[in-house]
Amino acid sequence: MEFRKSTKNDVPKIMNIVKQAQNYFKEQGIDQWQNNYPNEEVINGDIENGDSYVMLKDDKVVATTVISFDKEETYDKIYDGKWLSNGDYAVIHRIAVDNTYKGLGLSHKIIKYTEDKCRENNVHSIKVDTHEENIPMQKLLTKNGFEYCGIIYLEDGGKRVAFEKNF
């Protein structure tokens, strides 16, 4: 497995994986990643910001994620709980794995890679939010040592459950 920053050439492959995830959420009745989000504009913005990554297996893009060290404004207010820490943190957004490669632990590898990137930047906290009905993501986070911290609201008012891991 290899990780690298995404390039504009990766956008069609990333969008294919995103569309698979959107279809999965729709089939499961989860109102996450619907209404044309994330779209190519969002993905291109992630790439321009230097926050978009892809995972390669045999030179094929098999997963994608965003790892950001910028503060997340929507994390400034947390309800029905509190963050584990108040210092610097990384944020993981938009983890998605190609359907053909699901069940191989690639999402776990993305989290471990994020931890490595954090250590390189002397950051010891990762914060993540997900839809309250996205149980597979919540299980992934818990299995990887994240703790439930409370509720945050996105800029559009969407409710999300928030997790943090300190290491």
Score class of each variant (00 low, 15 high):
90 A>H: 05
107 S>Y: 03
77 K>C: 07
49 N>F: 15
150 G>V: 01
19 K>D: 08
80 D>C: 15
53 Y>L: 02
80 D>I: 10
47 I>P: 02
103 G>H: 03
39 N>T: 07
89 Y>T: 01
9 N>I: 13
35 N>R: 15
44 N>R: 14
28 Q>V: 02
77 K>E: 12
135 I>E: 14
93 H>L: 11
166 N>I: 07
74 T>G: 04
24 Y>D: 00
109 K>H: 09
71 K>A: 12
27 E>D: 02
25 F>S: 03
153 Y>S: 01
107 S>E: 07
17 I>C: 07
51 D>K: 07
50 G>D: 11
18 V>K: 02
160 R>Q: 00
62 V>D: 15
33 W>I: 01
143 K>C: 12
138 Q>I: 07
6 S>N: 10
59 D>W: 12
123 V>H: 02
77 K>R: 12
117 K>I: 05
74 T>I: 03
74 T>Q: 03
100 T>G: 08
143 K>M: 10
97 V>I: 13
164 E>T: 03
113 Y>I: 00
99 N>K: 05
130 T>S: 01
52 S>E: 09
156 D>A: 02
166 N>Q: 14
14 I>F: 06
12 P>T: 06
45 G>D: 15
160 R>H: 00
81 G>W: 14
134 N>K: 11
100 T>Y: 15
164 E>V: 01
45 G>W: 06
121 N>K: 13
100 T>S: 14
73 E>V: 06
50 G>K: 14
128 V>F: 07
68 S>P: 06
109 K>V: 04
9 N>S: 12
74 T>L: 08
33 W>E: 00
5 K>E: 11
125 S>R: 03
4 R>M: 04
70 D>L: 13
17 I>L: 10
138 Q>T: 03
166 N>K: 12
32 Q>G: 06
104 L>A: 03
